[in-house]
Design a protein around this nucleic acid. Structure first.
Lengths: 184, 184
DNA sequence: GACGGCATGTAACCAGTTACATGATTAT
DNA sequence: ATAATCATGTAACTGGTTACATGCCGTC
């Protein structure tokens, strides 16, 4: 259900169409809450019905018409309420890499090392991306306040977690390799 | 669909009933793949149909009968195949705390700080738990090999990520507080 | 003529959550 | 009595994924 709140945050930052929201969920807010265009269109429909957002149809030159959504007063109040609401006890964890590693002895250790390396590389890329965005958008982090501070902190959270994950991948690959070398 | 593989890993470690699996998914493997008893019973049913596991009905003294499941040859092969299979591009991220922080200026900053503190405390507890388990089950990590090494690495992954997350919570709470003090 | 970007959706399916349901034994 | 533990399930609902569907514009 949080997707609707993520959409509210994004639309309060700037009004936009379903398509534009789908682009934003490919990056930016989407790094912390993934969503496909199908989900977004479905949610927008519900949110209009609930009166959280309003819609203006905008005709465009040489492009299809689009529906621009903006947050209503009710929607803004609902978002503020949700932000203040305590979270559910804990977000449920589902990490298939951990399951694979835990089951490594029931498969092939080499392919688990390969899998760890693949994840390592994907997360290294993600970390690079976060760092690039941070440097581009927030070159002087000490001076930030308000909305920019919040956005920077979110990005920093991504950076901190990716750093830890990467370090762990390296540590694990090394341990698995020396275990294989030492015992096989 | 990975739940079925998590169950295969758990059943290869030790055969057990649906109820016993549900207990294991409250801890141990469940820290990295959450599942309720309803999901587990449904999956077990499918897995028997698929021939991945076999079932023995065991009568017990002063307790209800139970169905003890164990992994078949086909199931073991399927698990090995899955472990070697490259993961889907990236696990989809859904982090409502990040969404709330990003939307902090559309709600009440005080309640976002409270929310961060709540998460901080929950993750500190989780970190303590991981450390306790690590010390109890793997007191001498340098000597580990095979299955125990794998289990320890998974636990270490949890520890590394929780540490990073905690540090970020502290950093963010401090930044939000001085922003509030400095500008309001 | 084929592909990529803009723009909107529907439908079927799969996985996860919540609520409901039963019933014995053991401990407080 | 009441609650906790052992043990198994069904049913309804919600949210997410995959596949399908349409159509215009501009570029290669």
């Amino acid at each position: 259900m949080s997707l609707e709140y993520a959409i509210l945050v994004s639309l309060r930052e700037r009004a936009g169409s379903g398509y534009e929201l789908a682009r934003r969920f490919d990056k930016s807010i989407g790094y912390f809450w993934a969503a496909s265009h199908q989900q977004i269109y479905r949610s927008l429909k519900r949110m209009v019905e609930a009166g959280w957002i309003d819609c203006d149809e905008v005709a465009q030159d040489k492009r299809p018409d689009k529906k621009v959504y903006r947050v209503s007063e009710d929607g803004a109040a609902e978002l503020a309420r949700w932000i203040g609401e305590p979270a559910t006890p804990s977000s449920t964890t589902r990490n298939d890499l951990s399951v694979k590693l835990r089951g490594a002895s029931f498969g092939d250790t080499g392919s688990v090392i390969a899998e760890l390396t693949r994840h390592r590389d994907m997360h290294a890329e993600r970390l690079e991306l976060y760092r690039t965005i941070a440097q581009r958008d927030f070159p002087d982090p000490a001076k930030l306040a308000g909305r920019e501070l919040h956005q920077h902190l979110v990005l920093l959270g991504g950076i901190r977690v990716e750093e830890a994950f990467l370090a762990w991948c390296d540590e694990s690959i090394e341990a698995l390799e020396s275990d294989r070398g030492g015992s096989g």
